[in-house]
Nucleic acid binder design. Structure first.
Length: 332
DNA sequence: CGACTTTCGCCACTTGCTGT
DNA sequence: ACAGCAAGTGGCGAAAGTCG
């Protein structure tokens, strides 16, 4: 499935694509430009299978363009993904239109670009339709199978609590704590923020020590289901575990969560997953809990809030959740 | 008809999975 | 562990309904 010739790309240093990249970065300030470039590069590569340079012939190859999108569908890609490819191509051609020297070389250039964009827009319509259907079905399925309750989502926190308190106690007493236990403890702290505070993984990864201090002292208390002892757990991590992970010469960007190698953590999602997995090995918990993703808790909280809270409380939750994402957007 | 509300379509960005 | 990719999320403006 992987190799239907859909993953070939132009060399990274290809001139036109490099220009486009610069435009995305400098003019449009697009942060995730790499995926845009990759998508465009693959599309063009399919249309023009040979040569190291992109030629403008693709503007006239509407059939090949359509074929490529059909191939993507045959490779079982979702409409959302195909939509992204189309969008990225439109942006690329829109950018080409601004190149005055290309217009000079071909007086018909502008019209060709526009025709190509129109064609893409036309091809996009049915894809967009089926994307709506997919979204609709997903929502419907959630509705049918029912949301997991907040309690179910947070089960992993309760299951691990006893062991984590034991680690906590030993750290408090200055007893020995194995490094593996410390890592699990870090996972647990991340889980508190994701499942208890409803932070996004990106927000957890980006959280800095100064942000943590602020949050601890002012905000944070607004929300349901976060008890004092959990704040204490995070403080314990901050006080006894984090300092041991800091290495001189290794950049940690003042992040609250630091891996054992001293770098900032890369994937809070992954850490949460490992915490779920780890519970298999706890003596009093021999079965595996379903792995709850951050998106699921956030969904649950939002539906719970919609159903059970007063307007004022809803506003408070909405504000809190918004803040949870804000952290992700303002860091890095 | 215009004001007002709801739904749709798209975009920017994020999350999460997978193969190496 | 990480790069590379697919797909989900939330917000926002445009389009489509709906009512006086």
């Amino acid at each position: 499935m992987m190799n239907m010739g859909l993953y070939q790309k132009f060399p990274a240093e290809e001139a036109m694509l490099t220009d486009f990249k610069g435009y995305l970065i400098n003019t449009l300030q697009v942060t995730n430009y790499q995926q845009v470039i990759d998508n465009v590069s693959r599309t063009l590569r399919y249309i023009q299978p040979s040569g190291d340079k992109v030629t403008l012939d693709f503007l006239l190859k509407s059939t090949e363009t359509k074929d490529f999108l059909t191939q993507l569908r045959h490779a079982d890609m979702g409409p959302a993904t195909i939509l992204n490819y189309i969008k990225n191509m439109i942006r690329f051609v829109q950018y080409l239109k601004t190149h005055l020297n290309l217009v000079a070389a071909d007086p018909d250039f502008y019209r060709k670009c526009q025709a190509y964009i129109d064609h893409l827009t036309f091809l996009r319509k049915p894809v967009s339709k089926s994307n709506s259907k997919v979204t609709c079905k997903i929502r419907y399925d959630w509705f049918i199978e029912g949301e997991k309750s907040l309690r179910e989502c947070q089960a992993v926190l309760r299951k691990a609590k006893k062991d984590m308190l034991s680690v906590y106690g030993r750290m408090l007493e200055g007893d020995h704590v194995a490094s593996e236990e410390k890592t699990i403890f870090r996972y647990y702290c991340e889980a508190i923020l994701i499942l208890g505070h409803f932070l996004r993984p990106g927000a957890v990864e980006g959280l800095t020590i100064s942000e943590w201090d602020e949050r601890k002292n002012s905000g944070g208390k607004v929300c349901v289901a976060v008890s004092e002892h959990k704040t204490a757990m995070l403080d314990a991590y901050y006080t006894w575990i984090r300092p041991e992970c800091i290495r001189s010469g290794v950049e940690h960007g003042n992040r609250l969560f630091v891996s054992t190698l001293g770098t900032k953590i890369r994937s809070a999602t992954n850490d949460l997953c490992r915490l779920h997995f780890h519970l298999i090995f706890l003596p009093h918990c021999s079965y595996k809990l379903p792995n709850i993703k951050s998106q699921q808790v956030r969904r649950t909280v939002e539906t719970d809030a919609a159903a059970n809270l007063t307007e004022e409380q809803k506003a408070s939750v909405a504000h809190y959740m918004a803040h949870s994402t804000a952290v992700a957007n303002t860091t890095e």
